[in-house]
Design a protein around this nucleic acid. Sequence first.
RNA 1: GGCGGCAUAGCCAAGUGGUAAGGCAACGGUCUGCAAAACCGUUAUUCACCGGUUCAAAUCCGGUUGCCGCCUCCA
Length: 487
Amino acid sequence: MTIRIYNTLSRQKETFEPMNPPYVRLYVCGPTVYDSCHIGHARSTVVFDVIVRYLRAVGYDVTYIRNFTDVDDKIIDRANQLGVDAMTVAEKYIAEFYEDMDALHVMRADHEPRVTGFIEPIVEFIGVLIDKGMAYPLEGDVYYSVEAFSGYGKLSGRKLDEMEAGARVGIDARKNNPFDFALWKAAKPGEPAWESPWGMGRPGWHIECSAMSWKHLGETFDIHGGGKDLIFPHHENEIAQSEGAFGKPFARYWVHNGFVNINQEKMSKSLGNFLMIKDVLKQYHPEVVRLFLLSNHYRSPIDFSDKALDEARAGLDRIYTLLERMAGSPEIIEGTQRTQGTEVAEEDSDAGSYWDRFTEAMNDDFNTALGFGVLFEAVRETNSLMDAGLSENLPRIMENRADILKMGEILGILFQPPAQYFEERKAKEMAGADIDPAEIEDLIVQRAEARKGKDFKRADEIRDGLAAKNIILEDRPDGTVWKIGNE
RNA sequence: GGCGGCAUAGCCAAGUGGUAAGGCAACGGUCUGCAAAACCGUUAUUCACCGGUUCAAAUCCGGUUGCCGCCUCCA
């Protein structure tokens, strides 16, 4: 089994060969906690969540590090606005991050270091760079000297002498080179500050990731991830710091996820169209959001819209409808119990299965969009087998069921009992709509009476009336259930 | 100005040399009192356009058009 990963550093897909199999060391840049998480944070976090789940599922022993930037200009600004201290702001948004990501079924990383808990190694790291002549103190700040690192620009494909200094930000004449960046910032009055050989201050933005990955994963590690926007300058600067300090390659594979646009526009402050995760979750089930985020390849842009989310929901409904159908079948429930002890043997006999096709998709640069294609094919075949005859097709149905759930586990969906999924989906939508469950139940009873008396006109009136409110009735062998439609 | 990406059916989307996955939507059929769900079938002789390479190209090369991202703290 070979996994191929697109490496930003080489701009091509490469065969993934960890330094020390089966160990994989992975570092992903986490959020700066100065505001609520938006849908873009969700994409990055969910994408790497899936990558970690997959690597583990195929046998790698992954050490996953994701940091919190909990001291920074923006946090300080926000604290000043609110009249609280920076720590209070950071704590609030770290708590929110966990709320949002837990809801989205994102696993915790193995270590989630915070900058404020990492000052000592950061100071140590800066000291190494100064000793090597790659950084210089300047009036209480410390700057990295980009000219001292010959590889500067290799990740983002830039050359120092071709970059337009000051294109967006005024040039600081004190620096040796306009692209020199701060490793340490002297404290201004009232700002959070720590002692250092250069005076009271705090770390620059980029140094934390070099220091944290160094302490947790070593001088060289396997995969470094983050959003595309971090390629320059953040990741470029991390490379300069870490390779400058240790003279060894830093991360071997660089993985960057694309952006989420909102109705075809980039999310931005000026447009005021930041879409927060917590707001999206008020309207859509978390697994719908995950399905949406994973329905495009992780490197492509993805466009958020109600229509796109509604389609994702229709797709997820389809899968859960099958699981619900299975949950209603005594043979399958019995089959589940029977096979529970024989999981390992089942996996061996899985050659050529949907799961195998799914792994092929995932092995090709984590192609979750293709993976969903396999999942939906499995759903269709399984429905078809159940239509054709449950008992004669039971072994195959059980096999498909196991594969579907296994794929769901990697994608981070299908974790709920189907009945609960449909209940929660209903609850989400009733929150914003004028729907009274008791009234619906009452109408269903009335309709059942009418049907019993062959008064189909009355029965259809009730059903059509509900349909007008986007409530769909399903008459099943064991009674009538209602669902909210996809409008 | 520099660097990079994208353009596939009504919509979303996978597919990087061997003859167009999957989802949503629509229509027809089976099932049903009628529906819903499910299944079957139909919906791109064609992958922005023009050239070229090749036995063979959505896929490689050159050009044109259009859209987008990055170029100092935004995932």
